[in-house]
Design a protein around this nucleic acid. Structure first.
Lengths: 250, 250
DNA sequence: CATGTCGGTTGATCTGAATCAATGCGGTTG
DNA sequence: CAACCGCATTGATTCAGATCAACCGACATG
C-alpha cells in the first residue's frame, strides 16, 4: 500500500487515538476533536480501502477530492459490483438537493476530501450563479465520460478495456505530472486488480491475464506491482479500439 | 414502421417536395420554406430511422424532444455501436459551449424536436439563472441514469438486461399514460430489436431469444410485434437483478 | 403475381470471458 | 524464523452470449 502523506496542506492536528494526522474528523476513530463537523467547510482524510459513505447513507455534505482517488460504485443484492465513477483531485462528489448518497464512495488510495455542508452550499449556489455554472460544466463533462465508459462496458473486448483504462490513467497523469524521457510514459497504477475489474466490468482474473498478455507483447512494462511504463503510447492506443484522434490530450 | 403523426401541435405548413408536414426545416428534403432556421426557436420533425445529426457534425442548436423518441449512440471504427442516451419527450439534447455533436442522434420513432439556436440560448442562460439551475438538475438526473445503465452494461446477464429495459419503458409509459386493468401493464415497445441490442450491449439475436424466453415463461405477453403486456410487473422486476425497492415509481 | 425487403425468430456451432482452483510473493506479525 | 495475509498470477474447465446461417411473415413494388 502506498502511504502518501497528503502534501497540499499539512494537517494541524493529530488525533490522540490513532496515528492519522487530520484536520477535522478522523476517518479511523471518527473523533471530531476540533468540532469542525459544525463548520461549513472542513477536510476529511481516509486511508486506502476505507469507505467514505455507503449507498443509501445520509450524506449532508458535498465534497471535492484534494489528493488521492475516490471511487463511486453500485452493488447488486448478490454482490456484483460496478464502478460508476472515478474521482480524481479537483473532482466533485455529492448532489445538491439529495440527502443520501446513491453510491458507495470508497478511497482507492489514501484520500483527502474537502467537504462543504450541503445546506450552506446550496444557499451559496443560489447567491453565486457562477458556482452553479461551473457545476453544470463539470456535470456535463462527467456525463460525457460516463457515456464513453458505457461504450467500453457494452462493446469493448477485455483487451480493449484494459488498454483503454491504462490510456485514460496515463493521459491524466501525464497532463499534470512529469513524464519520462522520449515519449515514454511512466506512472503509478492507483488501482488494485480488483478495482480495475470493477471499473471494467470484468473479473480480476481476466484483468490479470490481459495485463500479462500486454506485458508479454511489450506494450507495457511493469516495475514492481504498481509502476507501469508505456514504451509507445500510440501502440497501446491502437489496442483500445477508439478513434485514434482521441490522443489530442497528450 | 409506426407512422404517428405528431399530436401536440398540428404543423402549419406542408413541404411541396415531400409529404411530411412540418413547421420549419423539412428533415427529408432539407427545405427551409419559412426561413425559420434564422429564428431563435423552431421545430423540426423526423421520420423513424432518420438521423438528426452525426457524431462530429456541426450542431449549432440545443433541442428538446416534443414527441417521439431520439437516441444518442457512439460508433467504433469497425461498426460496433453502443447507445448512450435515450431521449423521451421533454428530454434535452445538445451541450451549451460545444459546437459539434459528440454522438449520433437518431429518431427511434417519428420525432418532433423543439430547437433553440445555441448562441441566444447561452445568453439566455446567463441572464436567467433559473434555466441553468434547471439544466443542472436535468443533467444530474441523466448522470444518475447513465450510472444505472453502466451497472446494467457491466454486470447484468442478458436476461436481466432485457427485463430491466422492459421495466424502464413500462414504468415511464405508466407514469404518463393510461394503464390497463388490475395492475397489468400494456404498452407499445418503441424500439426495434436492433435498437434494443444497441441499448443493452447485446446482439439482436440474443435480444430476440431472451424475449422469446420471457414470453415462453409467461412473464410477458406480446400482441403483434410491438405491443407488450406485462401481466405481473413485480414478477418481471424480480428478473432485473435490481433492488426491489426501485419500484416506487409505479 | 412474383419478387424483394425489412424486422424478427430459431438453430447449430464457436469462443471469450467466467469460474474454480492452485500457487507465488512481498510485507507484517507473533 | 515461521505463519499468515493481501494481492497477484496462472492453469483447467465451463458456459453465456456471439457468430453464422436458415427461415418466416407482413408489406411494398415492378
Amino acid at each position: 500500500m502506498t502511504r502518501t502523506t497528503p502534501k497540499l496542506q499539512p494537517f494541524s492536528q493529530e488525533c490522540k487515538d490513532c496515528p492519522i494526522r487530520h484536520r477535522a474528523v478522523c476517518a479511523r476513530c471518527e473523533k471530531d476533536e476540533l468540532g469542525l463537523l459544525e463548520q461549513i467547510k472542513f477536510y476529511r482524510s481516509f486511508e486506502a480501502g476505507q469507505t467514505v459513505v455507503w449507498a443509501g447513507d445520509r450524506m449532508d455534505f458535498v465534497a471535492s477530492v484534494v489528493t488521492g482517488i475516490a471511487t463511486l460504485s453500485q452493488t447488486m443484492e448478490d454482490g456484483r459490483r460496478q464502478m460508476v465513477g472515478l474521482l480524481l483531485p479537483s473532482d466533485f462528489a455529492g448532489r445538491p438537493g439529495r440527502e443520501t448518497s446513491a453510491y458507495d464512495v470508497t478511497a482507492a488510495t489514501d484520500l483527502v476530501m474537502c467537504c462543504f455542508r450541503k445546506k450552506p452550499f446550496e444557499k451559496m449556489m443560489l447567491s453565486t450563479p457562477h458556482i452553479g455554472q461551473r457545476l453544470l460544466e463539470m456535470t456535463l463533462d462527467e456525463l460525457d465520460a460516463a457515456r464513453e465508459w458505457m461504450l467500453l462496458l457494452g462493446r469493448k473486448t477485455a483487451r480493449e478495456k484494459i488498454a483503454s483504462l491504462l490510456c485514460i490513467i496515463a493521459r491524466r497523469d501525464a497532463a499534470l505530472q512529469l513524464r519520462s524521457s522520449e515519449g515514454q510514459l511512466r506512472f503509478d497504477l492507483p488501482l488494485t486488480r480488483e478495482a480495475m475489474s470493477e471499473y471494467l466490468g470484468l473479473t480480476l482474473e481476466t484483468v490479470s491475464r490481459q495485463m500479462s498478455a500486454l506485458r508479454r507483447e511489450g506494450l507495457i512494462v511493469t516495475e514492481g506491482k504498481r509502476q507501469i511504463i508505456i514504451p509507445d503510447f500510440d501502440a497501446l492506443l491502437e489496442e483500445t479500439g477508439d478513434d485514434s484522434d482521441g490522443g489530442f490530450l497528450i
